[in-house]
Simulated assay, not measured.
Amino acid sequence: MKRLIAVLALVIIFAQPGVSSAHSKLVSSTPADGSKLATAPSEVVLTFNDELESEGLKLSVTDANGTVVDTGDGRVDLADLERKTMRVSLKSGVGTGSYTVSWSVVGSDGHEVTGSIGFAVGDAALPVTPPESDQHNPGLPATGSNGFNLGMLVAAIIIFMVAGVALRRRSVRA
């Protein structure tokens, strides 16, 4: 009985993922965030750690004045069988300047995560971009929590207390 309760408590504690550990997170981009390029790219490619849903997807590239410089074709790349890649083409004539790539995705867990990266062409300054954010839990970064779950800890403590009382009663009767 003691072993069963201990195993159950450990399963409860460690089986719970962090608050947002399953959310989609940007893992790479072309051009890379913070890069300075000699010439403007023809497209921007973002790669995430999780499968993306096509519905609710937003991807745009703007210059320092807020003018959209992409062609409006932001999409999940269907050539990527894992559906972890997004692409958007840039208009011709994009030249020297700083650019912000803003995105909003819904991952396989159903949560919307937004973020942006920046790059510069020529000698322009890099744009300042905010960190990713979880739209279901504003204020929490989308990169996940430390995995600590207070509710599960309280449940485990209660289980241990009940087991202790049961074992004490059992030993008093013996």
Results as ranks from 00 to 15, higher is better:
residue 105 V to C: 01
residue 118 G to H: 03
residue 24 S to L: 09
residue 43 E to M: 13
residue 85 T to K: 13
residue 71 T to G: 13
residue 92 S to K: 07
residue 139 G to H: 03
residue 81 L to H: 14
residue 146 N to C: 12
residue 124 A to F: 05
residue 19 V to D: 08
residue 157 I to L: 14
residue 132 E to M: 09
residue 44 V to M: 09
residue 64 A to Y: 03
residue 58 K to Y: 08
residue 82 E to K: 12
residue 98 S to G: 15
residue 118 G to L: 08
residue 136 H to F: 13
residue 11 V to M: 11
residue 58 K to P: 01
residue 150 L to M: 15
residue 46 L to K: 06
residue 64 A to I: 07
residue 170 R to S: 14
residue 137 N to P: 00
residue 35 S to R: 00
residue 119 F to T: 04
residue 161 M to P: 06
residue 167 L to N: 12
residue 91 K to M: 10
residue 68 V to C: 07
residue 104 S to Q: 14
residue 128 V to I: 14
residue 9 A to H: 04
residue 150 L to T: 10
residue 24 S to T: 10
residue 85 T to L: 14
residue 141 P to T: 07
residue 122 G to S: 04
residue 124 A to R: 00
residue 32 A to C: 05
residue 67 T to V: 15
residue 92 S to C: 03
residue 36 K to I: 03
residue 59 L to H: 01
residue 110 G to N: 06
residue 35 S to W: 01
residue 133 S to W: 00
residue 1 M to A: 11
residue 153 L to V: 14
residue 104 S to K: 12
residue 23 H to Q: 07
residue 55 E to D: 11
residue 160 F to I: 07
residue 161 M to C: 15
residue 67 T to Y: 05
residue 147 G to C: 04
residue 127 P to R: 03
residue 138 P to I: 05
residue 139 G to W: 01
residue 130 P to S: 12
residue 79 A to E: 12
residue 78 L to Q: 14
residue 147 G to D: 09
residue 116 S to K: 00
residue 11 V to I: 13
residue 168 R to W: 15
residue 130 P to G: 13
residue 146 N to D: 15
residue 76 V to C: 06
residue 52 L to D: 01
residue 108 S to D: 11
residue 64 A to W: 05
residue 157 I to P: 06
residue 13 I to D: 04
residue 32 A to N: 03
residue 103 W to T: 00
residue 22 A to E: 08
residue 42 S to Q: 12
residue 87 R to V: 15
residue 94 V to L: 04
residue 6 A to T: 04
residue 40 A to E: 04
residue 32 A to G: 06
residue 7 V to L: 14
residue 77 D to T: 07
residue 101 V to G: 05
residue 118 G to Y: 04
residue 118 G to F: 05
residue 161 M to Q: 13
residue 151 G to L: 11
residue 106 V to P: 00
residue 120 A to T: 03
residue 78 L to G: 15
residue 111 H to T: 13
residue 147 G to P: 00
residue 58 K to W: 07
residue 66 G to C: 06
residue 1 M to G: 13
residue 49 N to Q: 09
residue 32 A to F: 03
residue 102 S to G: 08
residue 157 I to H: 05
residue 102 S to F: 05
residue 75 R to P: 09
residue 90 L to M: 10
residue 171 S to T: 12
residue 53 E to P: 00
residue 89 S to T: 08
residue 88 V to A: 06
residue 153 L to C: 14
residue 156 A to I: 04
residue 151 G to M: 10
residue 56 G to D: 10
residue 150 L to E: 11
residue 41 P to D: 06
residue 114 T to I: 09
residue 29 S to V: 00
residue 10 L to N: 08
residue 73 D to Q: 10
residue 52 L to A: 08
residue 137 N to H: 10
residue 81 L to Y: 12
residue 6 A to F: 14
residue 155 A to C: 12
